[in-house]
Structures are given as structure tokens and as C-alpha cells.
Design a protein around this nucleic acid. Structure first.
Lengths: 137, 137
DNA sequence: TTTTCATTATGACCTCCATGATCATATTTT
DNA sequence: AAAATATGATCATGGAGGTCATAATGAAAA
């Protein structure tokens, strides 16, 4: 039960990107060096963010990345979903086959896990990228 | 951001133990075979639960484990703390040195992580082992 | 009283996968 | 040509998950 370093990197990188001009692409190398993130690694993360619809890319010289929408429209849930593929802390599925446990409906833990997932989800939806920007800068 | 299998195992095992007579030790082998948990692995987990004050042990023949207190006095937070050593999802510390980030007080993410940890903590405290026992059995 | 046996106690060890990170190379556009 | 993204292969490592061997303990059988 720990946040992945991927999420951590993405939050910092997206914060940096949010400070830039929305209309001009900003390169990964700049973000990476500024925020001290391995830039080859950040490339991979931004690929996921692009597929997840958080950022869009412009190729070639003068290219780079831009946010697809205003920071207050990007929740932490959106970001974690894009980068990790899920936000639920537990699913009543087999760890290997991914199949739902056949006793889930009669299991006394199911409600607990569902409730837990919901709490986390609600929390993550309540924070947006906007919340991480210093006002007045 | 995923619950450890250790937590999962412990919840099931403690539920099983909670169904037994509080005054008589119940052996790990019985719990393990009943709940289909590798018993050698469960031994290690119960060591942590004992050190964490969730269960107490009786050695020798007829020995085994017992809960140290009533199920409604054992929260999921207690269990996860005992078995994983923490319940916080993120700490603003270096992953290797464990030292607190020197910019934590001026960092715009600190509040978010603190808030996140608090939410999870509150949630975990609100559930006890009692909640997982079928009434009327 | 002695022995046996079922249990916990402890630490070393093993295996494997996910995480974290790099490299090489292709593609695009100024 | 240069500077950027795009993509996939590959590498390294730690931690998660699990096993093994052996000692210590204490109740019950002999």
C-alpha cells in the first residue's frame, strides 16, 4: 500500500508543465532536468499520459508536450489512472488469473474492500492539478 | 498502491481465530489448512501479529495462538500496522535514506499526501475484526 | 520420571516478478 | 541537420512471497 514512484514523478512533471504556456509545446528534457527526473524514464511516463488523454504531443524540432485541458479539469484520479491503470487498492480477484473470486458475494470482506476503494476514489477526484499550483506565481 | 497479500492473509486468519474459543490456543496449522494459506508463511505473519500485540502464543503441545482482546477492539489499522509496519501511502522522504525531504515544508504536494494518509487512517480505524464476523454463527 | 510429540521461535535461504531505469533506433518537423 | 517525440528491447534490483532447517518449549504418554 504505497504510491508508485511513477505517480510521484508524473505529479511533479505535470506541475512543471502546468506553469508553462498552454499553447507552446514544452520538451521532456527540460521538465526532466528541472525536476531531476531521469528523462528517458519520463518519456515512457508521458506516453502513458498521452494515451490517457492528460497531455498531447507535438513532434519534431520545437516540439514537446502540452496539457490537453486546464489544470482544474485534471484530477489526481485521472493522472493515477493514466499512469498506473487503476486506483483501487484491492480487488477480490485471483492475483494470477485476475478472475473474480467465486465467493465474493458471500464473503464478509467484500464490503470492506469496496468501501475502501470508494473512499480512495472520492479522495482522488477531489484534488486537481490546480491545487498544486502556487497562487500568485 | 495495492494492499499486500500479507494483510489479506492476516485478515482471513484472524477471522478464523476470532471464531474459536478465546481461552484455548488454536494452532497455525489448523488455521492455515482451513483458510488455504501456506502455513510456514503464516507462522511468520503471526510472529508479527504477536509482536504487534494482536495475538498471544502458547508454546508446546496443545499450544497455539489466541486473540489478546475482543474482536471489536482490533481495528484494521492495528492489523496492518502490525503486519506491514505502516499504513501511510506516501511519506515525503527519500526512498533510500528515509530522510524527510528538505523542501517538504515549502512543497505544494505535502498537504495532499498528508491529507491522503489521514483519510486512509480514519477509514482503517473505523473497521474492526468484529465487522468481519457473521452474526448468528 | 523420562520420553515423545506437537507446537511455537528464529533465521537463513530461495525464487520470481514488478519496479525503476537505460539503450538503440526510427520518425517527425523546423 | 538538428531537436524533438515514438517505440520496443533490454537490463538491474529490491521486495514480495514462500520454503527449509533447527532449536526451544511444555503437555501428555510411557
Amino acid at each position: 500500500m504505497k504510491i508508485s514512484i511513477d505517480t510521484d514523478y508524473c505529479l511533479r512533471a505535470l506541475q512543471e508543465l502546468a506553469y508553462q504556456d498552454r499553447e507552446n509545446p514544452y520538451s521532456i528534457v527540460k521538465i526532466a532536468t528541472k525536476r531531476k527526473i531521469p528523462h528517458k524514464y519520463l518519456e515512457k511516463l508521458f506516453r502513458r499520459l498521452r494515451i490517457g488523454g492528460i497531455v498531447k504531443s507535438v513532434k519534431g524540432r520545437k516540439g514537446g508536450y502540452m496539457l490537453t485541458r486546464d489544470p482544474d479539469k485534471i484530477t489526481t484520479k485521472d493522472i493515477i489512472m493514466a499512469v498506473d491503470g487503476r486506483t483501487n487498492i484491492h480487488s477480490c480477484t485471483d492475483r494470477k488469473t485476475e478472475k473474480l473470486c467465486e465467493f465474493a458475494d458471500q464473503c464478509s470482506f467484500t464490503d470492506f474492500w469496496t468501501d475502501f476503494n470508494t473512499h480512495i476514489n472520492d479522495f482522488l477526484v477531489s484534488y486537481t492539478l490546480e491545487d498544486f499550483l502556487e497562487k500568485g506565481k
